[in-house]
Amino acid sequence: MIYMLTDLDKKIIARLQGELPLTLTPYADLARELGMAEEALLARLGEFKAQGVLRRLGAVLYHYRTGYSANGMCAWRVPPDRVEEAGQIMASFPQASHVYQRPVYPDWPYNLFTMLHGRTREELENVAREIAALTGIADYTILYSTREFKKASMRYF
């Protein structure tokens, strides 16, 4: 479902792709900036959240600085009839973020993706082994990033 947005909605979203003011009353300050009432802003944000347009309002962390310095993209080759079950198990791991099913190609047979996080690569690889044991999916590969070219937040409007 594509959500129909008003111009004011787009302004709210554009503003929230940036940062909330770090004040005791961030919503009142933001509402003033946008030329609307605080109650109306809070109500709209509540609706965005309920409808899933706003996935999350919260802190985006710089993981490296919190001690989780090992990050790997772990891709799994899961039989189609086991995707649902395996995906749920993977999602239940706190060390796994971004669990997605994606299409396969002859030269890319892995259909489930998890980003794994650990304090060290060893810790991360132990998580992968744990997931493999719990799901019974033994065919997986971990791709580490060797260079970050870009990391930004999406600007929609």
């Binding site: 979203i13 940062e19 706003l54 996935r55 962390l61 710089y62």
Partner: peptide
């Protein structure tokens, strides 16, 4: 820099 940003994360598909 431990918090990169305090803000919203939106669902791009739902935004079209």
């Amino acid at each position: 820099g431990i918090i990169r940003r305090l803000g919203g994360v939106f669902d791009s598909q739902k935004l079209g």
